[in-house]
Design a protein around this nucleic acid. Structure first.
Lengths: 152, 152
DNA sequence: TAAATATAATTTGTATACAAACTACTTTAT
DNA sequence: ATAAAGTAGTTTGTATACAAATTATATTTA
């Protein structure tokens, strides 16, 4: 019997994602940072001194969720919140020296881990994998945007 | 500059997974069930009357997490816990008539939604996507298993 | 100029992932 | 027969995703 798309696309993608998170979290543990915190830190490392709103958009994270993640990153000394002189509601988020150092260390570290994970998979197949990934994401984003419009 | 594997494989997979979860949760909302609850229900629909331990293994869910998900599925009338006569620690989890009906309805419903999501993506590319997905999962599972062994 | 509306971020509540500890029960060793 | 070790499931705590409400502030409108 034919396997459903729910299982072959949906559940399989979610399962892979959880395994990726699991193994990367395992390797990040000694650095006192999680995969989600790292994704925020990396976003800042690439484009520093932006507002929380902008960071939320760039890292594709819910603002409520980002507030909590930033609390942890601030507590661990990787970033700091700087009041926006032009808008008392708003903060700029800035990476610290400690955060920059960690980022410089983690980028090659994670490249190595992923290098091990993808070992044995032909480059052409990985390229197609990434293309399909982007296509699926765009397709879903379009549906999500359309859903938001209908609510308005 | 070359994009890192962390971003092109890791973060991209996680991002797609979240979007899949988001759009499917949106569509499931009228049925009072979430994607994770559905994945447990579907596992039972396919292989009913098994212990919580077995269900945890088959659905690849943490036992603590599964306990909470089952609490909700029981509360909503989709499954029931039946004491195991041979082992007072253990339960059999059984799908209810309501749970079966919902499963029969959701399978084609979700097939339709995923059909829309994958529209425009050539079958050959989807096939490669699924192959790479499985390869990556196996690779990571191997690393996870190896990590568990080292701890022991 | 004051009122109304909009916005940035936070808080609260629920769902789920995971780690670790706990409780009740079963199996194994002595 | 009893103690020790192991197991099934639950509870507690933390991290993150998301929805909705809230607070403080900025902007727009009347």
């Amino acid at each position: 019997m034919k396997i459903t798309l729910d299982k072959s696309i949906g559940a399989a993608t979610v399962r892979l994602s959880k395994k990726v998170t699991r193994i990367i979290n395992h390797h990040l543990k000694p650095y006192c940072i999680t995969t989600e915190q790292w994704s925020v830190l990396r976003t800042l490392y690439e484009c520093d001194h932006i507002t929380q709103k902008q960071l939320s958009e760039r890292s594709d994270k819910d603002q409520a969720t980002l507030t909590k993640i930033l609390d942890l990153l601030v507590k661990n000394g990787f970033v700091e919140r700087i009041p926006n002189p032009n808008d008392r509601r708003s903060f700029f988020i800035k990476i610290t020296e400690k955060g920059s150092s960690l980022s410089e260390e983690l980028i090659p570290f994670l490249e190595n881990i992923y290098g091990i994970i993808i070992e044995g998979i032909p480059d052409e197949k990985l390229t197609i994998f990434q293309e399909v990934l982007v296509s699926l994401e765009d397709s879903i984003q379009h549906l999500l945007d359309h859903q938001t419009e209908r609510r308005n």
